[in-house]
Design a protein around this nucleic acid. Structure first.
Length: 214
DNA sequence: AACTCGGGGCA
DNA sequence: TGCCCAGAGTT
């Protein structure tokens, strides 16, 4: 079995619930939640969307929400204010250019305000079951440390991961690597001593923090 | 490639 | 206080 397979098998066992934690009932709701999820954990996003989607569940409803009102939702979670106007503009453009539907196409998604490659891939994988790997800061860091990729470029890392990870695992691998990056393989002071992948990781020795360190 | 945006939460 | 956070857009 390849090293990649071994890593995926361990991750699947360690993080058995790979589904996105973003609560949503439609591609549109997932799109809004994913835009919000930048610089913010899913848990906090769900606090916003629980109220937001209750009153404005569809693009047709949300487009009627005045920007200042939308900003109040955003501000309550400490998110970048530009997200509010991006969501507002995205609602308008979905209606004007896509008949109110979320396009199942990467380029069309990325053309929307506030939607980059990462957000687009999350939508494709989780709303449309189109295989895609979203490389965020966690995935990028973990993949590099594990030796699955060797690049500072998310786009390049995405290409490498798509080559070595079986397509059926793409959506799950995204979540496995993110969970692992948050809980164990943290940017600072990674918990290598508690890492189920330590024996497979070329970086574990170098990253192991001094137990005496405060 | 580097920079900005931005505030709540937590140590 | 200081530091972190499931990015995107602009220069």
């Amino acid at each position: 079995m390849s090293k990649t397979r071994k890593i995926l098998r361990i991750l699947a066992k360690t993080y058995p619930e790979p589904e996105t934690a973003l609560t949503h009932e439609s591609p549109f709701q997932l799109l809004v939640a994913t835009i919000l999820s930048a610089q913010c954990t899913d848990q906090r996003v769900n606090i916003i969307t629980e109220k937001l989607f209750a009153d404005y569940p569809t693009v047709w409803k949300m487009v009627t929400l005045p920007l200042p009102e939308l900003e109040k939702y955003i501000r309550s979670a400490g998110l970048w204010q530009t997200k509010a106007s991006n969501i507002k503009k995205t609602c308008q453009r979905l209606i004007e250019e896509h008949n109110g539907e979320v396009p199942a196409d990467q380029r069309a998604l990325m053309a929307l305000p506030g939607v980059g490659r990462k957000t687009a891939n999350v939508i494709l994988a989780n709303a449309f079951q189109i295989p895609a790997i979203a490389v965020d800061t966690h995935v990028l860091r973990v993949a590099n440390r594990l030796g699955l990729a060797n690049s500072k470029s998310p786009d390049h890392t995405e290409e490498q991961l798509m080559k070595i990870i079986p397509k059926k695992d793409w959506a799950d691998a995204h979540h496995w690597l993110i969970f692992h990056g948050r809980k164990i393989c943290k940017a600072r002071k990674p918990l290598c001593h508690a890492c189920p992948l330590r024996d497979l990781c070329p970086s574990s020795t170098a990253l192991e923090t001094d137990p005496q360190e405060e």
